[in-house]
Amino acid sequence: MKSSIADLRKSYERAELNEDASHADPLQQFDQWLQEAINAEVPEPNAMTLATVGSDLRPSTRVVLIKGYDARGIVWYTNYESRKGRQLAGNPYAALQFHWVELERVVRIEGVVEKVDADESDAYFHSRPLDSRIGAWASPQSQVIEGRGVLVANAAKYGAQFLLNPPRPPHWGGYRLKPDQWEFWQGRKSRLHDRLHYRLDAAGQWVRERLAP
């Protein structure tokens, strides 16, 4: 007999998040939690959900991988002509979410998105494995194709054309989300979860607030 999805429950009791033990700077708090996720060997700690909104006002999400972060923001790389690329071109505001299930933690980040500069995109592109660099040329991301054979044929074509030194495609590169809001969620018992929210005030300083779960 199938179990009822409505009856699936979990009690969150691994940790707590309070104002005294958290950082005043959300980037430092994120760095701490990301490093703890990596050290705990959770599956793909670098995976994050990216949410964008198109001109039709319909939101869409997909999972991408964080490739860098600093005071300027959170960086990932993709095809600029993909659905998310087209949506960001029309509406540069987006949201990111990390979910580290094993640690009972979620991080949500919101802000404006911009392309990283060409030199930064070039440097990352050339650090990728050869098959990934060829793949950036071979896949017309988000476009309808007749079958997988199209990708295989494209990969063979560009592999023969570029050999060991494919350049970065003009339609491929990095984005950086510049946060203006962060939220750190720690699961707690009885659904009384800890939620610390950070927002930029008019002076450009981070304000930390507790949200009801």
Rank of each mutant, 00 (worst) to 15 (best):
K189G: 06
G147Y: 05
Q87I: 01
R199H: 14
P45K: 03
A136G: 11
I74C: 07
L164G: 07
L96N: 03
Q29F: 10
S139Q: 06
L88D: 00
E19S: 08
D20H: 09
H171G: 05
A95N: 09
F30D: 08
D56V: 10
A71L: 11
Q29C: 12
V107F: 03
D7N: 06
L34A: 10
L57D: 15
L192C: 02
R105K: 12
A94K: 04
Q186N: 01
R210G: 12
A212R: 13
G147E: 06
P179S: 07
A21M: 11
E110N: 10
D119G: 01
D201V: 08
V75R: 15
G73P: 01
E81S: 09
E114Y: 09
Y198V: 12
L8I: 10
P43C: 00
H23I: 00
P45I: 03
L17I: 03
I66D: 01
S4M: 05
R86M: 04
G135Y: 05
D7K: 08
S142L: 05
K115N: 13
W185N: 08
R58Q: 15
R188V: 07
N79G: 06
N154L: 06
A118N: 13
D25R: 07
R133I: 04
P166D: 02
G174K: 09
R128H: 05
P213F: 14
L200D: 02
A160S: 10
T61A: 15
T78H: 02
E44A: 08
V113D: 10
Q186E: 01
S55H: 15
Y175S: 00
Q29H: 12
R58P: 08
W100H: 05
L17T: 04
E16S: 11
R9Y: 06
R72M: 10
L196W: 07
Y69I: 02
E36R: 14
Q161C: 03
P166G: 03
L8C: 01
L96T: 00
R133G: 09
S55E: 15
S127N: 01
L200N: 03
Q205R: 13
A156F: 00
R62D: 07
I38N: 05
Q181Y: 12
F30Y: 13
T78S: 15
R86W: 00
K178S: 13
M1E: 09
G68T: 07
D194R: 03
E13C: 04
A156G: 03
Y175D: 01
R210N: 13
Y175R: 00
Y158S: 02
E13I: 07
L196Y: 05
V207K: 05
D131L: 12
N18P: 00
D180Q: 10
T78C: 08
A136H: 11
L57Q: 15
W100T: 04
Q161H: 12
Y93V: 11
K84V: 00
G68A: 04
N39Y: 03
R199Y: 10
E19I: 10
Q29M: 14
A153K: 14
Q87K: 04
Y93E: 13
V75L: 11
